[in-house]
Amino acid sequence: MTPGGWIVMILSVSSVLSLLTFCLYRVLRLPPIDLQQHLKGPLEIDTRDTEDAD
């Protein structure tokens, strides 16, 4: 394996691992999502059609 091969391999693998670690660290530190937010039926969706009601 040439020095160029080592450099490319280490750079590629470490970049991907760093990015994945950063993302997972950020995601797993976030508070759990509010399930009530997800249980909206279509009738509860805010269509903004009452915003100018006045």
């Binding site: 995601v27 976030l30 759990p32 999502i33 399930l35 997800h38 249980l39 909206k40 039926g41 279509p42």
Partner: peptide, 9 residues
Amino acid sequence: QVREHWGSR
């Protein structure tokens, strides 16, 4: 009908 949803991030 209850809307489909994801349970977690």
